[in-house]
């Protein structure tokens, strides 16, 4: 029987006031991996509340970065035993050579693609509208790419390839040629004439239908699957390749980015950080652990990352930010 141990007991134990019996119980309790994790969580909290001294993390970090830069020449700061010879330097050299060969090969491949496809791309914070030859309109969100074949677009079907996020307004054609949005996420959207939003970034894929009718083609394991969406449907593809559909009352919210608007609903800072990275290429560092559980709801209009963060800080009252270089913003408690 594994005893249950409360945080207060662990704190007593760390302070050296636990009884011998309690110590025995803690020993037993800590043999369970989850309890061990809990122990270190509490140890961390205890050290923060009873710190012996306030070590300067910035000095520690810059020392660490210097050590990393010296790399293989670096010796441990504390030497207790004889060092063994290191072969990692030779391994690294081999790896660099191998990756150069690999890169050369890769470049050839990419170049092939350039010839066959016309690409429209957006950078950080950039939103761009593209008119396709069939007069369908595509609005590209930041850090996204739309590719379409240079030759023969619309001959059989109108096929485009999307990475990132885009809003589509597809014209329907008398010959009812299909319009297909292909993504890297094993998800294709087949359309007949409609307004919808497609999100296909490394974190996952989402399709929101505003008007009309679209069909999703996706792969689950080795099987091709199909699904028809109704207006107001939000379909998302999870990491296992499964598609979940739910109704959203405000499909327009998912296209709000077209007007540089960010709409959050119980959104954690971590997710907001992801959005900021996708839209502006700026990394948001959650500087203090207390912020880990902060969630935000509200609508904000911002043209760049600093503007957005400033709005968040103004609105929250106890959130502060500082900039670290061009592409990094650090959030802290005020």
């Amino acid at each position: 029987m594994i005893p249950e141990i409360k945080k207060e007991i662990i704190f007593d134990y760390l302070s050296g006031t636990a009884t011998a019996f309690q110590k025995r119980q803690i020993e037993e309790w800590a043999t369970v991996p989850e309890n061990r994790e809990l122990f270190f969580l509490w140890l961390w909290e205890w050290e923060r509340n009873n710190s012996q001294y306030q070590a300067d993390f910035a000095a520690g970090l810059s020392r660490h970065l210097e050590r990393m830069e010296r790399g293989d020449l670096e010796k441990p700061a504390i030497l207790l035993q004889k060092e063994r010879p290191s072969y990692s330097a030779w391994l690294k050299k081999g790896a660099i050579a191998a990756s150069l060969v690999f890169l050369a090969g890769l470049a050839g491949w990419i170049f092939r693609d350039e010839i066959r496809f016309q690409a429209y791309s957006t950078g950080n914070g950039e939103i761009r509208s593209v008119l396709l030859p069939d007069s369908s309109r595509v609005v590209l969100n930041a850090n996204s790419t739309l590719k379409m074949p240079r030759f023969g677009f619309g001959k059989d079907a109108r096929v485009v390839h999307l990475t990132g996020e885009a809003d589509f307004e597809v014209t329907s054609r008398p010959d009812r040629k299909r319009f297909v949005v292909k993504t890297d996420r094993k998800l294709d959207v087949v359309v007949l004439g409609t307004i919808f939003n497609v999100y296909a970034r490394p974190g996952g894929a989402k399709v929101v239908l505003n008007k009309g009718k679209v069909q999703l083609h996706y792969q689950q394991g080795n099987r091709e699957k199909q699904l028809t969406l109704q207006p107001g449907d939000l379909a998302s593809l999870d990491e296992k390749g499964e598609v979940n559909v739910r109704k959203t009352a405000h499909p327009a919210v998912y296209s709000a980015w077209k007007f540089h608007r960010f709409i959050f609903e119980n959104t954690s800072l971590q997710e907001i950080g992801k959005k900021v990275k996708e839209s502006f290429g700026v990394t948001l560092v959650i500087g203090s652990p207390e912020l880990a559980t902060l969630t935000i709801s509200g609508a904000f209009t911002a043209l760049n990352a600093v503007e957005l963060v400033e709005l968040l800080c103004d609105a929250s009252g106890d959130l502060a930010y500082s900039r670290a270089g061009k592409n990094k913003i650090i959030l802290t408690n005020r």
Partner: peptide
């Protein structure tokens, strides 16, 4: 805190749970 914004009638809302509240946050951090 209120913000003049027609899209979010209630204004931005910030919700915070203490980090030390238990296993959920242990996992989150």
């Amino acid at each position: 805190k209120k913000e003049p914004d027609e899209h979010s009638p209630e204004g931005p809302v910030f919700v915070r749970t203490p980090l030390t509240a238990g296993k959920l946050t242990e996992y989150e951090s």
